Simulated scan of single mutants.
Amino acid sequence: MLWREGSVAVVHRPRYDDWSLPKGKLDDGETVPAAAVREVLEETGFRAVLGRYLCQVSYRAFGRPKVVDYFSARVESGAFAPNDEVDELRWVPVAEASALVTSDTDRSVLAAFAAEPADLATLLLVRHAKAGKRDNWPGDDDLRPLSSAGWRQAGGLRSMLPLWGPTRVHSAPRVRCVETVQGVAEDLGVGVLLEPRLSEEGYWPDREAGLVRLLEIADGAGTPVVCSQGGVIPDIVATLADLGGVSLSGTPCKKGSAWLLAFRRAEPGWSTSDSHTSWPRLVSAHYFPTALPKPTT
């Protein structure tokens, strides 16, 4: 769902003579978020920065099932020029777009987009990549590094996470956590900010302080990446979902996975406790079990 201030993009596809939202197919060796950004660029000429996950829709086209994942996607740069797939693009308000698009599935995506403000704050919460078995590491567990499989996972994260335009990188002070997101930080030209409250040892003695620290990070400028551990992330996601009224079917947390969290900015009257301090409120949470593309068959 490509958007800019006050309007969304709707495209005309001459092959089908319909008005549609930009979408397309995965290339071999491509993740869903990468395909979303590439297809938007190819169809519209605009480079986009991804935001919250919107929904997944399923339908049949020419007798074959299709499944499409949609993200909010803010225009970063570019300009439209007619091409083989799209001969016209219109920037229209959501209500006008709903009347213009041909399919009901596109209308359902527009409704999901309109359910929350377009410019929500987003945060990428990552579990560190594989680091071998603790029992096989003879030294201080804090210093246990990534395994070869972990470095491959870190490489996938290095490719996928920039699609959301991150500006800051935070990590629990464990070598395996820092190494997981070090490449993202290097590509941004920033350092990794250490977060003791978001390690297992730092989080559990004072859960509320850990939650507050995560919300402080979310409430800052830009989009942060935060790397933590499997003993912390499920509790953070479940607690924030409960506080925000977000329904989740579970809080999985595989090594090298990521949660895309979207927040409304701080609102008076909402807090993590009975205090009057207000914090961002979680409105959307989407899980990526891996940042690596599916193997081709």
Rank of each mutant, 00 (worst) to 15 (best):
L146R: 06
A115L: 07
V184A: 01
A154W: 07
L123I: 14
T272Q: 11
G220N: 09
Y59K: 09
Q56W: 02
L125N: 05
Q153D: 10
L26D: 08
L50V: 15
R168Y: 01
S228M: 06
F62E: 13
D106V: 11
L146K: 05
K66R: 15
A262H: 05
L26M: 11
E43D: 14
Y287G: 09
P93G: 10
W259Q: 13
G6P: 04
V37R: 13
S77N: 07
G231A: 09
E201N: 11
A262D: 05
W19S: 06
I236D: 02
P65N: 08
L260M: 11
A48H: 07
P138M: 10
T44R: 10
G210H: 06
F288Q: 13
V232H: 04
P173L: 01
R13S: 12
R144T: 01
W3C: 03
L41S: 10
V169I: 05
E96I: 02
G63S: 07
D104R: 11
E5V: 01
S148W: 08
E88S: 12
W270Y: 13
E43A: 13
P295L: 12
G165E: 13
L21F: 03
C227D: 01
V169H: 00
R213Q: 11
A118L: 07
S228Q: 08
V86K: 12
A185I: 01
G139L: 05
R176P: 01
T239C: 13
A238K: 09
C55D: 15
E5Q: 14
A131C: 13
W164G: 00
A129I: 03
N83P: 03
S98D: 05
G45I: 07
R60A: 08
E195I: 03
V178K: 01
I217R: 04
A112R: 12
V86Y: 12
R74H: 09
L193M: 08
D119P: 02
T122G: 02
V10Q: 06
P162D: 06
N83A: 07
A131P: 01
R207V: 15
A48C: 15
L143R: 10
K294P: 03
T180L: 04
S7I: 00
S103A: 13
P14Q: 07
E85L: 09
R152V: 15
D135R: 14
A129C: 14
W279A: 10
G45H: 05
A34Q: 15
D84M: 06
A209L: 11
T296L: 12
V192R: 01
A154G: 06
I217D: 00
K130I: 00
I233K: 11
N136Q: 12
S148D: 15
C227G: 02
K254W: 08
C227E: 00
R144W: 04
E208V: 15
A79G: 09
S108H: 09
P166A: 05
G202E: 12
A291G: 06
L157M: 12
V49E: 14
P295V: 11
